[in-house]
Design a protein around this nucleic acid. Structure first.
Lengths: 240, 240
DNA sequence: ACAACCAACTTGTTATAACAAGTGAGCTTA
DNA sequence: TAAGCTCACTTGTTATAACAAGTTGGTTGT
């Protein structure tokens, strides 16, 4: 009838977080404190905390403690007219910064090649960016299918917004195909994205086409599922 | 340098799943077998399995064992022209069934009321459906903002697809606002959806408008994040 | 004053142990 | 034959214990 102890403790802490006893960034009681407060073993206290961490409500740092994760989500609007992540955040007035990690000619990854309809390992440009906004971090992987990109405006793409730069250079993005899915952080991502292993991630994968229906780039925006959500609208004058 | 034992074991099992040693529905080695195979304690073996379960790669049943979750995801296309879940699955040739749980007049829930722009607790119709497709289950909560729904075609909505029934009765759905986010199963949902506590869920929330821009209904489609994904396209003749 | 060290805290990993509880096969009994 | 029981196996929960490893602040020594 009664739930396991670790669930009860989790729920108690969750309610305290939701009711404001602990707010964004606060330190939760240490495992030792939970042991004494609830008269349980460390395993049980640990499992209670693990429940919160696995759901993204808190994050643990070895040597420091367990801290409440900000609960507010950043909404990325996918509605027409198409805007890239940077633009949409600017429109919403959310502080946004990104850091270029990689920008170089490379052989097309197999998934991007398939999406772009080109042979695997075709020559493309690959860009990797980290972005930060409102305390949350994410990653963007881009695969550009533009032959002479390097000579023309590659340097611009390293430091400026992708879509406007493309448009200014005669390649306006007209439409795209996209998939939104949820995956989990694996060992490849930990550190790179500061996401605990096993944490849920939102992945937004898209293929962008120019106005003549030719594929231009393939992208993946990877973000923490507890900090990001996506919105779309088919209404005429919508701007939510 | 070397990762913790339980991570190594998780990875080994994950690779075995991905390489086909264990496929959809197969039983993984029991905790006792893992203890002997890898010469570790039960805690470590358990933690290795817990990693897989928390990522949705496997699901554990007490008394039976741990079984591989189907990895294939069902894609729900949100592209224009608007189609409801049932229709899109039928179009893709995926076996689909739903079960009506609740259909009754009720006071509008606060979130639906806010989305529909009506006072809280206004009279509405509330419907709850469970659906099954391709081995996955999900739930649909609908809040209808139609005053004389009961007298006209309410019974039809219990057993047939929502959008066509609305259209046939003079209420064609023209456009919608939607948000896609990822949450986690809490105690309310376990059992109801056969989702383990803490499991990631995809939530698709939308407000549907008729052709005269009046809100008609508010809905939420809740599904397992490891079994569902959403796609959209702004291309003209797209049908992916 | 400053650097180095250390002690006390934190979470992370792992072992051993026991009991609870759900499942299923096989045996026993009516 | 059929119902019911038992036993072996499964995962779930919890306790105690020890060490590893990262952080922080205070103390000590130069």
């Amino acid at each position: 009838m009664s739930p396991p102890l670790h669930i009860s403790i989790s729920e108690k802490l969750r309610h305290q977080i939701e009711s404001g006893v602990y707010t964004s960034g606060d330190r939760l009681p240490s495992e030792h404190q939970l042991m004494e407060t609830f008269s349980v073993s460390r395993i049980t206290a640990r499992q209670a905390v693990a429940n919160l961490v696995s759901q993204g409500l808190a994050i643990a740092y070895r040597g420091k403690g367990v801290f409440v994760t900000p609960q507010k989500k950043v909404t990325y609007s996918l509605s027409s007219p198409l805007v890239f992540l940077e633009q949409d955040m600017a429109r919403q007035g959310i502080a946004f910064s990104f850091e270029n990690l990689v920008f170089e000619p490379a052989a097309a990854p197999s998934d991007a090649a398939a999406a772009l309809g080109i042979p695997k390992a075709s020559p493309v440009y690959v860009q990797k960016k980290l972005f930060r906004m409102d305390g949350a971090a994410g990653a963007v992987d881009l695969t550009y299918l533009i032959a002479d990109l390097g000579d023309r405006f590659a340097p611009l793409l390293e430091h400026q917004m992708t879509f406007p730069i493309l448009a200014q250079n005669g390649i306006p993005i007209d439409c795209l195909d996209a998939v939104i899915e949820c995956t989990h952080a694996d060992y490849d991502l930990s550190g790179y994205l500061e996401v605990p292993l096993g944490h849920a991630l939102m992945v937004y994968r898209y293929t962008a086409y120019s106005s003549d229906q030719q594929p231009v780039l393939h992208g993946a925006t990877i973000s923490r599922a507890d900090r990001f959500c996506y919105s779309l609208s088919t209404r005429a004058g919508a701007s939510a």
